[in-house]
Design a protein around this nucleic acid. Structure first.
Length: 517
RNA sequence: GCGGGUGUAGCUCAGUGGUAGAGCGUCAGCCUUCCAAGCUGAAUGUCGCGGGUUCAAGUCCCGUCGCCCGCUCCA
């Protein structure tokens, strides 16, 4: 089969490979699994760690690969690690509590879903419908006029009451878009946030939330970082870790999980420079994903339309990947948002703690040559990536079926993220080859073992061993053969092409070092 | 939440109400000088889970859970 971009990859095959080779397992599988939760096996755990490390290196320790920012200076970032559980008021300030606690009712007939507090009902003026059904509607929706007409035909004069004022179950209520009565479900809370109760004695008053994003931890500690680390605007604070969201419908393998890991940077800058920084990060993030293997046309940058933007945002872009299950559409890997001064302002209001910044490089020049300074709430650019989605995209992009090869399934990971960095094989398990292989493996272990696995294998045929490594995504195999003993050279075999070349035994580590960067 | 599909070995899947199977993979031994080669052997299953019908259930019925697809939802 030709490899072609239009040929969709089979998600079933990818999921089977993930299980077979120990990338991803269902969480609590022996108990039947738990909806929306996934575990990483040995190779998956290392793949994701490599992804997280790459992000950490390229976003915090050596941001944007050492490039100069739009201000002409080296980009500066610092790390932070904040708690999953924060003060409940953090989520009030961020808007997560207020926005997403609405009870909803579903209609079994029309499949509609309505906000409970928006549903009204036409009842007879007297308030007593007897045995007759009453008519629910949603204000300013087509259902209002339609239901009024029916209600007036049934009762004559009618008045409106809230659905919540009627006793449950609503067996005689006809849903806004339904024909038959009794199809509305009881109201259900759609809490996007998980809650929990800290403290050994259970007391609802102490309710706290598992964070739905890592970003708020950064805003909440912004002042501490400024006060204790000599950072100066512009600078960024990076934070990675687990977040939790009660997705309505976990779906599509690990793409929409209820527990997931984020890597978020909040980059603080002067309002006047914020658009430049927004474009800087947006473009760099796209380039970065490309650099670790999402190089094809499956990756796109999508600028949000004006009507898609939050009211405070002056620009948002998504880095999106065409997963097999979204094709021909795309799924979000990362959002880069210009958040203005929204978050710091919110936390300043709710906490009553000043979160502005005194910028000594701005303001009018004083007679002594210094600056008067300017006080402002920094604007913030937020590149927020999903590491699990990233890992899944890396797997999907790497997955290749090539029927022309004896082992058709290959994971073509970029060497930087590949969980297995190299394999060392004795061509046959005798004649002094195993000993040489062992010594070479030891050397590679010392040099590269912290970045990923170094595999050795002497069992079965060489073809099978290559095939196993192809399927696990190992980019390079080194094989010791009879000639090695005579001239100190080995075969270096490339995963993607299957081609091999002879290189000197003592050059193997250097060969690998060049290619793993 | 609704509808459809599905669940049997690590993976892919067969399996007429009557003793749980195959291929691949895995492991061991032999063989093997470069691409899942060959030979011999081995291990691996509460047939997703729980009820029910039946002399007898992987198979029929009910419930439940997970996964996939489509709607719905998606800060």
């Amino acid at each position: 089969m030709e490899r072609s971009m239009s040929q969709p990859k089979s998600m079933d095959a990818i999921m089977a490979l993930c299980k077979r080779r120990g990338f991803i397992y269902q969480a609590s599988e022996i108990y039947g699994g738990i909806n929306g939760f996934w575990d990483y096996g040995p190779l998956g755990a290392q793949l994701k760690k490599n992804l997280r490390e790459a992000w950490w290196q390229d976003m915090i320790m050596n941001p944007a690969w050492g490039r100069k920012g739009p201000n002409g200076e080296r980009v500066r970032c610092v790390p932070l690690e904040t708690c999953i559980i924060q003060h409940p008021k953090v989520w009030e300030a961020s808007g997560h509590v207020g926005g997403f606690n609405d009870p909803m009712v579903d209609c079994k007939e029309s499949k509609g879903r309505y906000r409970y507090d928006h549903v009204m009902v036409f009842v007879p003026e007297s308030g007593d419908p007897g045995d007759k059904p009453v008519f629910a509607y949603v204000g300013d929706q087509p259902s209002e006029a339609k239901q009024r007409k029916k209600a007036e035909k049934t009762f004559g004069a009618v008045r409106s009451v809230a659905l919540s004022s009627l006793p449950q179950p609503w067996t005689r209520v006809i849903g806004p878009d339904a024909e038959k009565p009794g199809t509305l479900t009881e109201p259900r809370m759609f809490n996007l946030m998980f809650d929990t109760i800290p403290g050994a004695i259970r007391d609802e008053a102490n309710k706290a939330y598992l964070r739905p994003e890592t970003a708020q931890g950064i805003f909440v500690q912004f002042k501490n970082v400024v006060d204790t680390t000599r950072v100066k605007i512009p600078f960024g604070i990076g934070n990675t870790g687990r977040s939790f969201r009660n997705e309505v419908t976990p779906r599509n393998f690990t793409f929409r999980s209820r527990e997931f890991e984020q890597a978020e940077l909040e980059f603080f800058c002067h309002p006047s420079e914020s658009q430049d920084w927004y474009r800087f990060w947006r473009d760099f993030r796209m380039e970065w994903w490309r650099s670790i293997g999402l190089a094809g046309e499956n990756l796109i940058l999508r600028e949000h339309d004006k009507d898609e933007l939050s009211h405070y945002s002056q620009g948002t872009s998504d880095v999106e990947y065409r997963f097999p299950f979204t094709a021909p559409g795309f799924g979000e890997l990362e959002g880069i948002a210009h958040r203005g001064c929204y978050d710091l302002t919110q936390h300043q209001e709710h906490s009553k703690v000043k979160l502005d910044y005194f910028d000594t490089t701005r303001g009018e020049t004083l007679p002594n040559g210094g600056k008067k300074g300017e006080r402002y709430i920094p604007h913030c650019i937020e590149p927020a990536a999903g590491l699990d989605r990233g890992a899944l995209a890396l797997i999907c992009e790497a997955y290749t079926r090539d029927e022309s090869r004896p082992s058709p399934e290959i994971l073509r990971f970029h060497p930087r993220v590949a969980p297995i960095k190299a394999a060392v094989f004795p061509l046959v398990d005798k004649d002094g080859m195993p000993e040489v292989a062992e010594r070479l493996a030891d050397e590679l272990f010392r040099r590269f073992g912290r970045d990923g696995f170094i595999e050795t294998d002497a069992k079965q045929s060489i073809g099978k061993r290559y095939a196993r490594m192809d399927e696990a995504g190992c980019p390079f195999c080194f094989t010791i053969d009879g000639d090695t003993l005579k001239d100190q050279t080995v075969t270096a075999r490339d995963r993607d092409t299957g081609q091999q070349q002879r290189i000197a035994l003592d050059k193997v580590a250097g060969f690998l070092a060049e290619r793993l960067a």
